[in-house]
Structures are given as structure tokens and as C-alpha cells.
Amino acid sequence: MHLVYPLVLAVLLFGIGLYGVLARRNAILVLMSIELMLNAVNVNLVAFDMYLRDTLHAGQALTLFVITIAAAEIGLGLAIVLMVFRNRATADIPDLRELAEHKEGSV
């Protein structure tokens, strides 16, 4: 298999995830887009592990670590989003502007 196929797949997936992170409004949908980006990285790691014939299998080990960290991240992220939702009754990122710099006279 040409190495270009998995690499281009990973790049396109990463681009889609990047669009989702920038364009989505709901915090949980942003978390889903981050998952897409992490999966793009995993495709790269597996492809290069196979390509380089790594005797230590660093690529596969790192893929497993990334999957684990993604699971931890999604658990913590959802806990934070749920807490924000309970306190503010919204999970929309543009509405969370408490820390934004207020312009003169707007407050």
C-alpha cells in the first residue's frame, strides 16, 4: 500500500476536525471534533509504525496512549461542560463570555 493513502486520509480528517472545532457552537460538538483530530493523529502513527518497521513499536504504543488520553480527556471535558451547563444553563461556547474583555461603556 502506498504510504500516501493513510497520510492523506489523516490530513483530510484533521482538516474536518479543525473546521468543527472552529465552527461549532455547542461545547460537546467541539469535543467530538477534537476526537476526529486525535484519530487523524492515530492513523499517522499506525501508518508510520508499519512503514518504518519499528522494532520497539513506538507508533502502536503511542497510539494506545493517545486513545487512553482521549478517553480521559473526554471524561473530564464532559464533566466540565455539565458543570458549566448546570451553572449557566447553556453549553454554547460563544455565550460564555464572562472573562472577555469588556469594551468601554458596554457594562
Partner: peptide, 18 residues
């Protein structure tokens, strides 16, 4: 409307990076 108004800049950035 799940998408922010910043959809076109987001698409530009993503397409450029890709």
C-alpha cells in the same frame, strides 16, 4: 443553528491547512 457565524473563516482556515 449549530454553527457559529464564523463558519466561512473556519472553513477558510481548515481548507488552507488541509
Amino acid at each position: 443553528p449549530a454553527d457559529r457565524a464564523a463558519r466561512i473563516p473556519a472553513a477558510t482556515v481548515a481548507l488552507g491547512a488541509t
